[in-house]
Every structure is written in C-alpha cells, then in structure tokens.
C-alpha cells in the first residue's frame, strides 16, 4: 500500500519534462515571430539601412520621434484614429444592446432565428468582400444615392468626401458587427431571473420601466466589462476596412495610424520612421490595456488576464 502510493505520487510529479517538451515548439514560434520583431523595434532609434542591418545601422536617439511630433499630418492621423475607433466602439455597443433587447421580445421563433442567422453573417466575411459591397451601394449612382434622390436628396459622394467618409466607415463597421456583438448581451438578458420581470409587472411597471429597472441593470456588469476591455481598441481604427475603402482624397479624414505606417513606413521604405510611429502606438496601447485590466479587476472582479 505504502509502496503503491509512493510510485503514484512519483509519477504525478514526474511529468515536468514532458510538459516542457510539449510547450517547446510553440514557444520557439513565439520567440521567432513575436519576440524577435520586438528586438527589431531598436530600428525606431536608428537610421536603419537594410544593407547594414540592425547591428550595423547608426543610432540617432529620439530623432524620429521628434520628427513625428513636428509633422502636422501626424496629429491628423491620431485624431482620425481616435474619432473613428471611438465612434465604432460607442455605436457598436449601443446598437448591439438595443438589438439584443428588442430581439429578446420577439416570440415568433422562425423570425428570430432567421434574423439572427442574417445579422451574424457579415461578421465572418472579409473586408475585401464587404468593401466591394459597400462601394456598390455607396458610389455616386449606387443604390443608396438612388434611394436618396427619390426623396430629392443628394447625390452624395460618400467615398470621396471628407465630411462623409468617417460616418461611412463607422456606419458600415456597425453594420458588419452589431449582430455578432449582440450575442453576448442576448446571453446576459436571458440569464436575468424571470421572477424579477414578473414582480415588476405585478407592481404595474410597463415595458419601458421593466427594461429600465430590470433588464438594463441586469446587463450592466457585462456592459461595463466590455466597455472597459474595449477601451484599448481606441487606437485601432480598423486597417482592413479603411485600406479597402480609402483613397488620397479622404486621407484628411480617414487616414489612421496603421494605414499611415503601412504607406509611409513599408511602402515608402522609411522603415525607421514607420517603426517609430508603430512603437508609439504600441506603447500607448500597452498602457491602455494594462489600465483597462486593472479597472476591470477593481470594478467587476473579472479580468482579461
């Protein structure tokens, strides 16, 4: 008996070596493709010349960062990013919540299921595909302008106007994602105790009052949690979408950090400067995500990591 116990416990503590071997391949990939580029960030402080490489290029300190802040276009790029990303977060959240509340009231099963099937779909399609859909709908004589003209409005050059480009980007992103985003809220609504609704009805509360006093408070923890965890996305304007929809005429209102780094840094082969802009973004992103995690931990007792 004593003997068996000992061998069993020995086996239980033994698998360490196997665990290390199991995790090794993944760690090697992480080191090569995630950590080596981080060392490559040194480029941001160099005058990087591809022929000389990272070890041979000259250090220039914070020159690229100083240059970045001296450019008038950089302020515009950061403003565009924050306005577009902020708009997406706010309107995606609002519409997803409203949609979830309304869908929960639908009692006709086939209708509910069909609408769910339709609105979850665009989330799985690539922006390459959806950009063509958007261009077909919103070009100068596309269907949207045809409809507007029948009301005596327009035509509007949605894709080529600096007033309309941001609303178009935010609107089409909400169109793509609101259904999928509503899934979590719908789950939160269905987990609310039905007894609370019954009690409120007996007390004479109408639909609005029940939504306001029962449903929304029940959803509040998950709304708060997602709002906090979404905060770091304020610097992600959505490269795929904007790259597939923008053009030089709307750089003023639609150029975001990621498209700027791609165009100036990678296409323009200004590697060091592009890396400096990217690094600046990554550092702010890191600070935001750490604070978001702390805040989530403090207020909702949940966290991302």
């Amino acid at each position: 008996m004593q003997q068996r116990k000992r061998t069993a416990s020995k086996r239980l503590t033994n698998p360490n070596l196997t665990y290390h071997l199991m995790i090794l391949p993944g760690i090697i990939f992480l080191l090569i493709f995630n950590y080596t580029p981080m060392f490559g960030l040194v480029m941001a402080f160099q005058d990087y010349v591809p022929a000389k490489g990272i070890f041979g290029s000259d250090f220039v300190g914070f020159q690229h960062f100083a240059y970045m802040f001296s450019l008038p276009s950089i302020g515009r790029v950061f403003t565009n990013t924050i306005v577009i990303a902020g708009g997406k977060i706010i309107f995606n959240t609002l519409l997803a919540i409203v949609f979830a509340i309304l869908l929960n009231e639908v009692r006709v099963r086939w209708l509910k299921k069909s609408v769910q099937t339709i609105v979850y779909l665009p989330n799985f399609l690539s922006w390459v595909v959806l950009a063509s859909v958007v261009v077909n709908m919103f070009n100068l004589d596309g269907n949207v302008n045809q409809i507007l003209e029948s009301f005596g409005l327009g035509p509007f050059n949605f894709l080529g106007s600096n007033q309309l480009f941001r609303p178009l980007i935010i609107g089409t992103d909400v169109w793509k994602s609101f259904g999928f985003n509503s899934i979590v809220y719908l789950a939160a609504i269905t987990s609310i105790d039905p007894g609370l609704h019954e009690a409120a009805s007996i007390d004479g509360a109408n639909w609005w009052r029940r939504i306001w006093h029962v449903t929304l408070p029940g959803m509040l923890p998950i709304i708060l949690l997602l709002a906090i965890l979404n905060l770091p996305n304020i610097l992600n304007g959505g490269f795929d979408q904007i790259y597939n929809l923008y053009s030089p005429v709307v750089y003023q209102s639609g150029d975001i950090i990621d498209t700027y780094v791609y165009r100036v840094g990678l296409m323009g082969r200004d590697y060091s400067f592009g890396t400096a802009v990217g690094l600046f973004k990554s550092i702010i992103g890191l600070v935001l995500i750490l604070s978001a995690n702390q805040t989530a931990k403090k207020f909702t007792e949940r966290q991302l990591f």
Partner: peptide, 12 residues
C-alpha cells in the same frame, strides 16, 4: 499585449 508591429515583423 505588445508586438513589434508591421515593419519589424515584415523584416523578420
């Protein structure tokens, strides 16, 4: 949480 970004990854 953090990454080297577009250009350093491309160079790797």
């Amino acid at each position: 949480l953090f990454n080297g970004g577009m250009i350093p990854t491309y160079l790797v």
